Amino acid sequence: MSAAEHREFTASVRALLTKHATSAAVRAGMDAELGYDPTLWRLLSEQIGVAALAIPEEYDGVGAGLIESLLVVGELGRTLANVPMLGSAVLGVQAVLLSGDGDAAARLLPGVAAGSTILAVCWAGADGWDEPGIHADGETLSGTAHYVLDGLPADTLIAVTTSGLFEVSADAEGVSKRAVATMDPTRKLAEITFDAVPARRLGDRDPLVVAARLREVAWAAVAAEQVGAARRCLELTVEYTGSRVQFGRAIGSFQALKHRMADMYVLVEAAESASQAATAAVAEGSASAAEDVWAARIHCSETFTTVVSEMVQMHGGIAITWEHDAHLFFKRAHGDAQLFGTPRRPLTHSA
């Protein structure tokens, strides 16, 4: 897609989410067993085709790409709607494609493209994503995957192990799921245990290379989400300070707050540039992808955390009430900062 087509596409996604992913709808999804509104996912899949974006046409997809998928992730960040986009239509799809297994892609991806099949990537161990929680003994899987996105509603599980990727039906004997308590109530995570479960190996590519590439995709996706959420926090803050009156004036007219909001704006703009560079590098398979994603991971996490903290400060006491959405963005910021792990060392500036 061209830049103009990207803008038009983003506007369509935002319009649908504005109508159907309101604060009340997101809160209702938080209380649902699946953690999201299936009707919203159906509308996004059928009317806009978001689940099919990164799926090649030969597997009934749109054949667009990762860039378009992450535009959707960014828009979802603005609303905190937890549909199976990041976990299934981005990570799940990319895991299958990265495996190089054409038979698996032909079997799994048409259902994902239609929005009727949900994939969940089972990856992290108890200490995070650097050590997989699942180990393979031949074609048999054992262990526990932690922090699994879309794990509860998943139809098919894609297990990441040091031996490669494996496919398992979510209702296979020996597989058990449980929801886990999280700081962020808008995003449900699951713990999935495999007890000597027979599995189907996906492709024969180097598992270290596949896992590294999948991590780049994951970090680029989270960065896009963080930018969308941070920009929405900035908009809400500007709106609130323009209507909140103290000493006979809107507080947004006070110079000190103007400066703080200007700083927020600069942070969001810079983070968006970092996110876009990372997404483009990963989508193109650029040699700089690892570095670009690393930088975006750090900068976008810091930006979202800073902007949402300023949002809470400038909203005052109302921001920490359950009724206001500021605390939901605050919790998403802290959850996203840890999701899929963090770089092992910070970026440094050479002299």
Results as ranks from 00 to 15, higher is better:
V210M: 14
G63Y: 10
G228M: 03
W41E: 10
L234H: 05
L91P: 12
L97H: 10
W322Q: 15
H259K: 07
A54Q: 14
G335V: 06
D206H: 03
A113F: 09
R42N: 11
G341D: 10
L141F: 00
T144D: 02
V180T: 09
L44H: 13
T117Q: 02
A281N: 00
R7G: 06
A333I: 11
T144Q: 02
V307I: 08
H6V: 13
V282A: 08
V90C: 08
M1W: 04
W129V: 14
G138Q: 11
A32C: 15
V266H: 06
M261K: 12
T303L: 06
G63L: 09
A114Y: 01
H6R: 09
M85L: 10
A113C: 00
V238M: 15
S142H: 05
H146E: 05
L40G: 04
A211S: 12
V96A: 09
V112A: 03
V308M: 05
R7Q: 13
M264Y: 04
P110G: 04
S2C: 09
D263M: 10
S309V: 07
L328N: 15
V83H: 05
L70I: 05
E323P: 01
T186F: 00
V307R: 02
T144I: 11
G102S: 14
Q47Y: 06
R215P: 01
G92V: 04
A179M: 13
S2A: 09
R187P: 01
G74K: 01
G65N: 12
S88C: 09
A223C: 08
E310G: 12
D127G: 03
R249W: 10
V217T: 12
A81W: 04
V308Y: 04
D101V: 02
D130L: 07
G87F: 03
T22H: 09
D184Q: 10
E225C: 11
K258C: 10
A32R: 11
L43C: 00
L189C: 07
A21S: 09
A218F: 01
M261V: 07
A280Q: 13
V73Y: 02
F194E: 04
R344I: 08
E173V: 15
I118C: 02
A250I: 03
Y147I: 07
I48E: 15
W123C: 08
A126N: 03
H349W: 13
A333R: 12
A271Y: 02
A333T: 11
G100V: 03
A120P: 03
P153Y: 01
I55R: 07
L16V: 04
G49K: 14
V160K: 05
Q338C: 06
A124Y: 03
E191G: 06
V50H: 07
T305R: 11
V121L: 15
L97T: 14
D37M: 02
F247P: 01
D137A: 09
A114Q: 13
E8L: 09
V227K: 02
V180L: 10
T144C: 04
M183C: 11
M85A: 09
V209D: 13
E284T: 02
P132T: 05
V312A: 15
E239V: 07
P207H: 13
P110S: 06
D103Y: 01
V90G: 10
F247A: 14
S45Q: 05
F304L: 13
R205S: 12
F304I: 06
D127C: 00
Y240D: 08
T279P: 00
K188C: 00
I251S: 03
L149R: 08
